[in-house]
């Protein structure tokens, strides 16, 4: 048994958790999420750098909330998501045990939220090289070029809403796109409506997105949708000095204000 499997077995045996959200290797060799509710299943657990998924999404599932004492394998993005969710009062009804791998590949189990927060703050990531490159490219474009770029991307969107589904911050029990009185976003997939959908998604995540990049990574048509919130987070940090997923006490930037917020465009 690996040290992870030993640790999880221990957590089950001393009653700290009764459900563990983790990864296992599927038949096609990719890590898939797994939900372990007893010691006998611990053997399938894996936790490697290829486990990129953000499992904190599952913390909103009814079945998980019912389990009460939940353990979760968390990569750094997941940790930030948990910090942000706690700051938005979303994880009140479960006792969570968070397990991560530190930079030396050692297992860390956080005893308190403070410990977790301190770890996150000490290991706060820079934007990935890839995203930085794309962001620079986009910023260097003229406005009309950017318009062309994004409308072309959005024309391919099929409105499968996978970007919403994998987002740990999209936890509303009923989404704006699901209402039809009024119909804010068209049901059919067509560029105008798609653009509105992605604008709305980004705006609703403004100051809350923790930059895990899952939405862009999993988009079946390969739209880099995460760039919208990456850009917004940059703005928010520059304008208001707020970082998302950084502190459990912060709330989020668009939920608060300072009388001295600066802008140059209001006449």
């Amino acid at each position: 048994m690996t040290s992870l499997q030993n640790k999880v077995t221990e957590l089950f045996e001393n009653g700290t958790i009764n459900l563990l959200i983790g990864f296992k290797e599927a038949i096609h060799k990719l890590p898939v999420p797994c939900f372990i509710d007893n010691v006998s299943q611990v053997e399938q657990l894996i936790f490697t750098p290829s486990c990129k998924g953000n499992l904190s999404v599952y913390l909103h599932k009814t079945e998980v909330k019912q389990a009460k004492k939940v353990g979760i394998l968390a990569n750094t993005a997941t940790l930030r998501a948990i910090v942000q969710l706690v700051s938005e009062n979303q994880l009140g009804d479960i006792e969570k045990t968070v397990i991560t791998l530190n930079t030396n590949g050692e297992l860390v189990v956080f005893a308190t939220m403070d410990e977790l927060e301190a770890y996150v703050q000490a290991n706060f990531p820079e934007l990935s090289e890839e995203d930085k490159k794309l962001l620079d490219q986009l910023n260097a474009m003229s406005r009309t070029e950017r318009w062309q770029y994004w409308t072309e991307q959005f024309s391919a969107c099929v409105k499968c809403y996978a970007c919403r589904a994998v987002c740990p911050m999209c936890y509303c029990s009923s989404c704006t796109v699901e209402g039809n009185q009024p119909q804010w976003i068209k049901v059919s997939s067509e560029t105008t409506g798609n653009l509105e959908w992605h604008t709305m998604r980004a705006m609703h995540l403004g100051g809350r997105c923790i930059n895990c990049g899952e939405c862009g990574r999993i988009c079946p048509v390969g739209i880099p949708v995460h760039m919208l919130t990456v850009k917004m987070n940059q703005d928010i940090e520059a304008e208001f000095g707020a970082k998302t997923g950084f502190s459990v006490k912060n709330g989020y930037a668009l939920n608060s204000f300072k009388p001295g917020d600066k802008e140059q465009f209001i006449k």
């Binding site: 403004g206 100051g207 850009k231 703005d235 304008e239 930037a253 608060s256 204000f257 802008e263 465009f265």
Partner: peptide
């Protein structure tokens, strides 16, 4: 605050 962010997002798109 929202306008600051929204305007910049629109421009980015």
């Amino acid at each position: 605050r929202r306008w600051i962010v929204f305007r910049s997002l629109l421009d980015f798109m």
